[in-house]
Amino acid sequence: MTLKILYFAWLRERIGEPSEQVETNASTVSDLIAELRSRNERYDFAFSDLSSVRVAVNQTLSDFDATLDGASEVAFFPPMTGG
């Protein structure tokens, strides 16, 4: 499947792109992260501390063990600091 992946804040800066299209067979968010980390050092570093990474699947806050079934957009970002 083709996924649109978005990065925000320091994840965007570390990866160097705000978004990309990815062709993947990953079945969960965790699988997708493992796939991205294996690409190169930039991705590996960006995802090295998952306690400071949050994920949204199809614009809804989600968990790392969430399925990617029916997903078209996955966003990775640090804990939110609005208000």
Partner: peptide, 14 residues
């Protein structure tokens, strides 16, 4: 609303 907005709305400050 403020409590939830601070950590559940997708904003990031630099």
């Amino acid at each position: 609303i403020m409590d939830f907005l601070k950590s559940r709305a997708p904003f990031w400050k630099k």
